[in-house]
Each structure stands twice: as C-alpha cells, then as structure tokens.
Amino acid sequence: MTTRIGLVGAGFIAGRHLDALTAIEGVRVAGVADPRADRAEVLAARAGAAAYAHWQDLLDVERLDALYVCVPPHAHGEAESAAIERGLPLFVEKPLATDLPTAEALADRIDGAGLLTSVGYHWRYLDTLETARELLAEAPARMVLGAWLDKAPRVDWWARQDGSGGQTVEQATHLFDVARVLVGEVEGGWATGSRSAQGPGDILDVCTAALRFSSGAVGSFSNSCLLPRAQRIGVELVAPGLGLWLTEHQLVVTDADGERTVHRGVDPFAAEDRAFVAAVRGEGDDVRTSYREALRTHRLAVAVATAAAGGGTVQL
C-alpha cells in the first residue's frame, strides 16, 4: 500500500526531505504547498506531485497519510493545527516556532489527540552520535563547548527577529539538542549577545551562553552569523580521559590511544524520514524526537535567546 505524504513548504529543507522520501519504497509525495507558486511547482515536479499555493488546498484535495511542515519559524502553527484536527501524523521541521507559547499550545493539542509526531533534529540519527553516547557511558562529560560560527542564510525571513527568532533559536538549537542527548538537562545559566552595523537584519549577530547541567557538567555555547562561510559548527565534549568533537559529518575521538576520526555512515535526513514513515505504517518505533521532546530543546533555545537579548539569567 502506498504511503501518501504532503509537504508544506518548498524551500531547501523541504527538498532534502522530498529526496529522502521518494527514495523509500512505497512512498509517494502527493502534493507540495507553498505561497510562492514557482517554488511549489519546481519542487513538486521533482516527485511528480501536484503543486498548491496554500496548505489548505493541499489538505482539502489530497488524501494523505502524513503531513510534513517545513516552513520558516514564524509560519508555524496553522498547518500543524489543521493536521491535528484531521488526525494526520505530523513531521515538523525545527525550530517549532519563533516563540515558546505557540509551541507549548501545539504540544498540548498534540498530546490530547495522541498524534504521532516527529521533529527534524536530524543529528539524533547520526551513527557518530551513538558512538559518542557509548563512549560517554563509561566517562560522563564534565564540559561541553558548542559552536555555530557561520554565515547568514540568504532568505529574507532569517535576519528578522520576528521571522526566525534569531540564530540561537533557528540554528544553535541543534547544539542544545545534542547537548541534552549527551550531557543531560540544563538547570540554568547566563547569556549575552549583541548586534552590530555589520550584522544582518535586527537579530543578534553574536551570542554566547554559560550553562550548568543537572549532572554537574558545565557548558559554553556561542553562535555568530558574521562570517563569509561556515567555520566551526559542532559540539566538543570533555570527560575524564576522553575528548570528543562531533559535527554533522564526523566524530573526532581523543583518548589514551591517541586521536582518531570516525566519519558518519548514514545520512541522518534519510534515517529520520525512514523512521517516521515506518512509524506511520505501524512498522517501526524509532522516532527519536517527538513534538513534546523537541519542545524541551526549544524551551532551552528560547530561554538562552531571551537571556542574551537582555544580558541576563537563563530562566527555565
């Protein structure tokens, strides 16, 4: 039986998911909706799908088994609500929203409906992340250093605070999610940030946070969008006799035997989409980030961003 998927949004990330989904046997991307008709038509053509100017039309016309919501942070809410009303399994790209109340309200509705959900924290499907977890099981991390030093994406909404929530919420959220997996929950901390005439839009172009974890570990997380290209994106961990540097592409391990590099063996986008489709079909249970779980990471990212804007305490 064919599993029919609808895509809301036709940007870069939606394209990554479309390619991964169409590679799964028995999956059909039935329709793509985007207010920019040209983008919807181009992406839909790659899968032989129908193009729609509005997600409401996609839901009204197509018979779907699940819905992917891959929209800018400020556009989250309405499409998810419609999926909840229809009982459609829901895949949502991170971040969940620009703010916290929108995500919290959706989480409550999703829980009430008992809806199957997955959120696009694709780093959780890295085999190198699993290797890091195994190594840290014997020597828990005492320090974590996260960095997202990059350029600003060339989309108009990203450099607007009301469009993206800022770089901490839109990009560094991956760092916080990995830290939660490998180190545990954050109890609190402090953050600061600023913006300059050289920075894009009205968002903070530099931000740094010092956090403490319930395990007793400490962490430092910094992000900037001032660079001409990506320079350093990943999480570094310090444990007794062990050092780790994890990126989306590899894991560098430093221990008593020296230093070695482990390259990822899986495409995390493809892995998370296969897991979600299997769950939709009732054939698997490997969804690693439900909406409620993703809300914990989103809450942390928003707390850090809020503190950075005022140069104060991270309130969780």
Rank of each mutant, 00 (worst) to 15 (best):
A49L: 07
E78P: 12
G11M: 08
L64R: 12
G15E: 04
A20D: 04
A30K: 11
S81W: 07
G77M: 09
E80I: 03
F91W: 15
H74E: 13
D38Y: 00
L58R: 03
V27E: 10
E41R: 15
G26R: 12
R36D: 15
A33C: 03
T22K: 14
A23P: 11
A82N: 07
A37F: 09
E41D: 10
Q56C: 10
L88N: 04
A40C: 12
A82M: 05
R46K: 15
A33D: 03
A10W: 06
A45K: 09
Q56W: 01
L21Y: 03
G11E: 06
L88K: 10
A51C: 05
P73L: 08
D65Q: 13
T22S: 15
D57A: 14
A23K: 11
P95A: 11
G15S: 06
A66V: 02
L96K: 01
A44E: 01
L90E: 07
Y52G: 07
V29S: 06
Y52I: 08
A30D: 11
A37L: 15
A49S: 13
A79I: 01
V8T: 05
S81H: 12
A83F: 03
G26Q: 12
L96T: 01
E62V: 10
G6A: 07
A66P: 01
F12L: 15
L90M: 11
A47R: 02
A23E: 13
H54L: 10
G26V: 13
Y52M: 06
L96C: 05
E62C: 10
A97K: 02
V29N: 06
I13V: 15
A53R: 15
R63W: 11
R86I: 09
L59G: 02
A50N: 11
H54S: 13
H54V: 09
P95T: 14
A49K: 04
R16Q: 15
C70R: 00
A75R: 12
A40D: 09
D34K: 02
L59E: 05
R28Q: 14
R16I: 07
Y68M: 14
R63N: 13
P89A: 12
G6D: 03
E78D: 15
L18A: 14
